[in-house]
Design a protein around this nucleic acid. Structure first.
Lengths: 222, 222
DNA sequence: TCCCTGTTGGACTAATTGGTTAGTTTGATA
DNA sequence: TATCAAACTAACCAATTAGTCCAACAGGGA
């Protein structure tokens, strides 16, 4: 039609469809998402969607992969090498939280995928191999901190990663119900800010706490 | 039919329907849940469901209220009075985590409700007034701990509650994707156990950490 | 016996759904 | 300028969905 520069641009069109699909899936989840809504958002005929993609599930998996890729990229991007362990850890915490704040699609995609018990991830080969690097970074920071005597010994990196994520993730993913319950607009920028500081405080307190005599909860080395 | 003791028991039947609905909603979320599946689970005719309930959404809200009630009851049940603040806090942490472990339906219901941006909670008057008591308990424990010099000062109870919940919730709600990513069966009892200890350790470390000189992240009193 | 309440059955609809078919437009090229 | 594959569309389809209607029936108390 009387459309702009890029008419009949296959790649661009596919990108449009993917963007529309991400918006739709990230707003309504898998079951709530409507293929018709996606084509409407993308301003494309329905058949074109089926021309480029196998169908709803295929599209969903593509989006899931994109989302994981974003997550991994932004988490690993941390300029962490060279920093002292404390700063590196703070940076890593802030970065993890920031991803969730700035890419809210991630949260609903992950929730949706867990609702389906990670059925789709299994079908994607690339996602599973993504997290090794992140775990390695974390392990390295912990090792250095331990060596320099600023961090406690025997911290499980996986457990710690889950804690860092969880402290931010839950706040954001459940912000609507929590805001109602506690009558506080958790989405407001100043509260987000505040939560980030709290998160960092919590993690660093945990890591820098020296073992107490007669510790009530001796954590296994692994 | 050749069915058990309580034939023609209206209340029991409604209870059966509610139980079936909870199972269905907690397995598939709101959009994934099928009314037909609910009546099949409840072994009841479809008419009967519409006889007792307005429809799918009505049923969903009822389940949501039940779930919140469970949550509130089990969290407030903590025999916390009389304990010293440290023990009380540990108890509260464990209890919060235990609810999520033992009532996994809660997690998906909350996730679903947040996917819908708490649209249904707004329609329920009773839920919103539930959490005052919990917040009060938490505030009291903090006050005592502060008074006795074992806890740091100026901790925001809401922020802390969100952290306690988040540390457990994220682990459980995202266990399927996380298990794949880290190749560790997070649902296994020994790992659950381990996480609980980690959670407590983290919270107590945070609370009992004395303020450092030149603190890197001074937390606002509120 | 009669009737009230709890209950079933099945056929039905109106809307929506994911997906398909059959065809038209476009731009590069030979 | 005739051709052809790729980009694109409109209309349709078959299945599924939540929700309804209506006629019937079973058990227990009056």
């Amino acid at each position: 039609m009387a459309e702009k520069p890029a008419v009949r641009d296959a790649i661009r069109t596919q990108e449009k469809i993917l963007a529309a699909a991400q918006a739709e899936f990230a707003r309504r989840g898998y079951d709530g998402a409507r293929v018709d809504a996606i084509v409407a958002r993308a301003k494309v005929s329905k058949n074109l969607l089926y021309h480029y993609f196998r169908g709803k599930e295929d599209l969903y998996i593509r989006i899931l992969e994109r989302v994981y890729e974003t997550l991994r990229r932004r988490q690993s991007d941390v300029a962490v090498n060279g920093l002292d362990p404390l700063d590196a850890m703070i940076r890593l915490c802030e970065n993890t939280f920031r991803v969730f704040v700035e890419e809210p699609d991630v949260i609903i995609m992950l929730n949706t995928e867990n609702l389906h018990r990670a059925r789709h991830i299994g079908k994607s080969t690339i996602i599973r191999s993504m997290y090794d690097r992140l775990a390695e970074t974390l392990r390295e920071i912990l090792r250095q901190g331990e060596e320099q005597g600023v961090f406690r010994k025997g911290v499980d990196p996986v457990e710690l990663y889950i804690s860092i994520s969880g402290l931010g993730y839950f706040y954001l993913s459940n912000q609507y119900t929590l805001s109602m319950l506690f009558n506080r607009k958790l989405g407001a920028p100043e509260h987000i800010e505040h939560r980030q500081a709290h998160l960092v405080d919590m993690v660093i307190s945990y890591l820098t706490r020296e073992p107490q005599p007669g510790d009530w909860t001796p954590e296994l080395a692994r």
